[in-house]
Nucleic acid binder design. Sequence first.
DNA 1: GTGGTCTAGACCACC
DNA 2: GTGGTCTAGACCACG
Lengths: 141, 141, 141, 141
Amino acid sequence: MLETVNIHSDVAVYAQIENHVQFAIAAGDLQAGDQLPSVRELSERLQVNPNTVAKAYRDLEVMGLVYTRRGMGVFINKNVNASCRETVWKRIIGRLHEVVSEAKAAGVPLKDVREVVSASYGEGGDPYADTPLNLLALAKK
Amino acid sequence: MLETVNIHSDVAVYAQIENHVQFAIAAGDLQAGDQLPSVRELSERLQVNPNTVAKAYRDLEVMGLVYTRRGMGVFINKNVNASCRETVWKRIIGRLHEVVSEAKAAGVPLKDVREVVSASYGEGGDPYADTPLNLLALAKK
Amino acid sequence: MLETVNIHSDVAVYAQIENHVQFAIAAGDLQAGDQLPSVRELSERLQVNPNTVAKAYRDLEVMGLVYTRRGMGVFINKNVNASCRETVWKRIIGRLHEVVSEAKAAGVPLKDVREVVSASYGEGGDPYADTPLNLLALAKK
Amino acid sequence: MLETVNIHSDVAVYAQIENHVQFAIAAGDLQAGDQLPSVRELSERLQVNPNTVAKAYRDLEVMGLVYTRRGMGVFINKNVNASCRETVWKRIIGRLHEVVSEAKAAGVPLKDVREVVSASYGEGGDPYADTPLNLLALAKK
DNA sequence: GTGGTCTAGACCACC
DNA sequence: GTGGTCTAGACCACG
């Protein structure tokens, strides 16, 4: 249940926020009509500048995942669960294909690849373990 | 036989060059004593700034993979094949772990992951198909 | 017979209400002495904050289109039909000029512009079809 | 040949920049491979903050109209002329339809509408007269 | 209270 | 030189 953002990651903070929201929508943890935490609140919790959160929210709106009600807040759009899941999956599958192809080209034995897959996927515990913040917890609070 | 660099990629041009050299060394396609194309030549072929190629070569030298003979050119070091392969493998394994963990977090069934792995690894064809430039071809020319 | 406000629109909710009242007055659908729905009632019907409706009514009063009788409600003023129509027309003409100029700048052929005008003006049907709420219906109820 | 942005307009500065680029692409004045003025240069000319220009450029990249080459600048994408023109036209036609429908509903005579159209479209002079800045001039400089 | 916009200025990576 | 990111803080419109 991390509520922090990884400042030292190579992925931008605003991108981490966007990714987390996308994941949560794809997983069905954020549903149509749910309100995201306010820019100010989230920025305080994550210890980042409000503008950074606002940028993430704005991007999500451009992507069509959320909408803004002036003076009210930011909300999850309707009918985004399926499309969002598709988008997320496609991106992941694409990267998976890429890295596996590279592994083959580099001569990594298929056996080793399978082993890593099993080990990485088999790890128990929090499904959000690899994402740096748990926006869901904030939204549902 | 790509001889181009992907300028639309999100990975820096110099990094693409470095990666490709590392890859070729790990695969044994570039061996001790082999000469890399000159900065000028490669920069012209790839349509990139000479400084970019120079930076890549400099980085590779810092990594200990190549050495420079003033006035002669840049050459592959001895005994770098094994260490280079280890580096490349580690990086690939790391990314593999990352993407598989993400796949799990996003709810992609393990079955689908395995399927993609099989499909991607099983594909025949040019081992360089997924890398944007074929430095090997230039070096061996 | 829309009785809703478009919360996804880029025009403010209070402005949508004001516009609709102006429109209805200009069209003669709301006449001198007619009573507007109460703030509470309208806010409930439209599912918006009462402050929003109150602001719209206040603005309309400032414009001189309506007057408030304390404890009684809000009523349409006398002799506002003509001036209101002028206001509405001017606004429409202004926007029309704007969009046509843009069309020209963008290279839309005059022929196409005229065609759209004919098609749009020629369309029959509910004159309120393009306005998001039918305040008239509420007022006359 | 305005090279200024309208600070007091109701449309955001960054949006004015975006619109102008879209218009220029749609009109064929900015073509594939053309470089936009640098963020810093344009911000100086327009007397706005570099971040404002950067925001516009970033949005244009998200829209797929331009791409960024690190350290090099921002360039027009391929195959955007047609799609951009379609987008721009659709937006204009949509607004035209909207305003004409409103005009009809408000009782503006068709004759008057046609007259305004002729007057607005017939105006001679710079096709960019209604857009607040001439980015083209900067880009082609 | 909410988000939107803009400014000023910093630091970074890349070319 | 280029753009990308983030911070700090201001002002505004909206509800």
